[in-house]
Design a protein around this nucleic acid. Structure first.
Lengths: 189, 189
DNA sequence: TCGCATCTGTAGCAGTCACTACATCACCGA
DNA sequence: TCGGTGATGTAGTGACTGCTACAGATGCGA
């Protein structure tokens, strides 16, 4: 095997992740991807086995990048501020791109298609934990953090997804304020 | 042109909608669809012009079916109950299938790909109005209905999408209770 | 009965897809 | 120097894609 092999594989995986964050994962095809990476479809199959394995790895790497941003969020003084910080993070260029990949994967997995469903499951579990951790760091009581985290995550995600479709940022902002207030109230009752 | 033409076209459009609700819209291809409808890809192109037009029409029809269910929801006595009724409707078999088609369309349209983006936009606008109307009928003040509707819609949608991925119905249910309570409070302050 | 418009079947276009067979290359240990 | 292993290029495979050319069928008005 040798280290050169591992290096090359990881390098291609990172490059493929960049490419997918740019072009989406829905219509991904090996040949244009390979050309963009300066290699051939032949080599992608050689290193990853098949397209599904490559897709699964790319989704995981994409999600890891987004999680790193969430994990590095500054601790806020109140749960309400924590929600506003999350909403801001959702629009971080890195996170935004990664969320696109996630939602495409979840949508393609809705009917049980692999590897999208499995990859989306793993991504969601890690992501949900990341959001809950952030809330906990910002003063949400531990035993309520999961439940509140689910509400916050679902609402922010729904709003985020509606945005390019609905295109109404002002309404979304005031909705997020309502949500932040709700999280605050649920944390301290 | 003649009426037979219109009849046949509408019949094929309805059949295609059934097919897409079953198989998803992501990997839709004309030939298997045509075979399931007892016709040929040749005829689908003849009646709809091209695949994109067919896709747009199917998404619209799918959304119309879901809207009919929301529009027929019984009026509830409180905004909180209205939210719970919506959450139940989200799991109506018809609505559930239609939402799958919508989210696939929205996901595929995230990068601006037509006809998915346009179809998702139109579907979202109609859907959002339907939810807002329902809340209004159930006692949410008119001037607040849109804002509350956006929050409710986004949160329910996010929860719904996470469900097949996360698979935790109990957490979702309690989150919806929190959401219903929130809608109630926002309606009457 | 003729002509025209609507409709439909057959066959095939050019292109793309994931994936593979095969040969060749570079390199490293013996 | 030899053999073996990992890495890579070339050139395909058959299956599938949306779409079309063309001929034929059907039915209706003149």
């Amino acid at each position: 095997m040798g280290e050169r092999n591992l290096d090359r594989r990881g390098q291609l995986a990172e490059g493929a992740t960049d490419y997918v964050l740019e072009h989406g994962i829905a219509g991904l095809s090996l040949r244009p991807l390979a050309e963009a990476l300066g290699t051939s479809d032949r080599m992608l199959v050689y290193y990853f086995g098949n397209k599904d394995a490559l897709v699964a790895e790319v989704i995981e790497r994409s999600n890891d990048r987004a999680l790193a941003v969430i994990g590095a969020l500054a601790t806020q003084r109140t749960p309400s501020q924590a929600v506003l910080a999350l909403w801001a993070a959702w629009h971080d260029p890195v996170v935004d791109r990664c969320l696109r990949v996630y939602v495409q994967s979840a949508a393609l997995g809705l009917l049980g298609d692999e590897p999208y469903l499995g990859a989306a499951r793993r991504a969601h579990a890690a992501w949900s934990a990341g959001v809950t951790d952030h809330l906990r760091r910002c003063g949400v009581p531990s035993r309520r953090a999961k439940r509140i985290g689910e509400l916050v995550d679902a609402a922010l995600f729904g709003l985020w997804l509606d945005q390019p479709v609905a295109g109404d940022l002002r309404t979304a902002t005031s909705v997020v304020r309502d949500l932040a207030e709700t999280a605050q109230r649920l944390s301290s009752r």
